[in-house]
Amino acid sequence: MEAPSAHGHRGRVPWTGLQLAVSLLIFWIPPRSGGFTVESRQNNVTSNFCTIISATYMPPGTDVLIWYKGNITNGENRIASYFKNHGSVIPGPACNSRQTINTDGSLVIHRPTRKDSGYYTLEAVRGVQSLGSVSIQVFLLDPETPFSVQESPSTVQENDIVFIVCQTNGKRFSVNWYVNEQKLQKKHNMYLSSNQYTLTINPIRRQDSGIYRCMYHRGMRFGRSESLTLLVVQSDRSPHK
Rank of each mutant, 00 (worst) to 15 (best):
L228A: 01
H217T: 14
L230Q: 04
V149N: 01
Y68W: 02
S5R: 05
F173T: 13
P112N: 11
A80N: 11
C50T: 05
S133K: 03
V156L: 11
L25M: 07
F163E: 09
V22I: 15
M215A: 10
G105K: 03
E181C: 14
Y212R: 00
H110C: 05
T200Q: 10
I201M: 13
R224D: 08
T155K: 11
R224G: 07
A80I: 03
V128P: 05
K186C: 15
G219V: 00
K241W: 09
Q167Y: 02
C166H: 05
N48V: 06
V162C: 13
V179F: 09
V156Q: 04
M1Q: 10
S130F: 01
P31Q: 10
Q157S: 06
V179P: 05
R237V: 11
G70L: 03
L122W: 09
E181A: 12
T56A: 10
I66Y: 00
V89Q: 06
S235F: 03
T121E: 11
V175F: 09
Y191F: 14
E144H: 10
S47Q: 07
R172C: 01
T46D: 08
S5T: 00
W28N: 15
Q150V: 03
I161Q: 07
C214I: 06
S40T: 08
H9M: 07
R218A: 11
T168H: 12
R126A: 12
Q157A: 04
G118Q: 03
S23Y: 14
H217A: 12
V125E: 04
L20G: 09
Y120H: 11
Q196L: 13
A3F: 01
V45K: 13
D116Q: 05
A55P: 00
S33I: 11
M220N: 09
S106Y: 03
S40W: 09
G170L: 13
L20A: 13
I52R: 14
P153L: 06
G223E: 12
S148T: 01
I136G: 15
G17F: 14
V232G: 07
T103A: 13
F27K: 08
D208W: 01
H86V: 15
S194K: 06
G35D: 05
T103Y: 12
A6C: 03
G11L: 06
E123L: 00
M58Y: 15
Q137A: 10
V232A: 01
D63M: 01
S54F: 04
H9F: 11
T145Q: 04
P4L: 07
F173L: 10
Q207D: 12
A124E: 07
S194F: 03
Q196R: 07
N43L: 15
R224S: 13
N180V: 11
N189D: 13
G223N: 11
V179M: 08
L131W: 02
T103R: 05
M215N: 08
A3L: 10
A6K: 00
G223Q: 08
Y120F: 15
R32S: 14
R126K: 14
G87D: 02
N48S: 15
N74A: 08
S225T: 15
S33H: 03
S174A: 14
C214Q: 10
V108D: 11
G75C: 13
V22N: 14
S225R: 03
S130W: 00
R32H: 13
G34E: 04
D236W: 07
Y120E: 04
L18R: 12
P60M: 07
I201P: 12
G8I: 02
S152L: 05
S154C: 04
A3R: 02
N48I: 02
T145C: 12
S148L: 05
C50Y: 13
S33V: 09
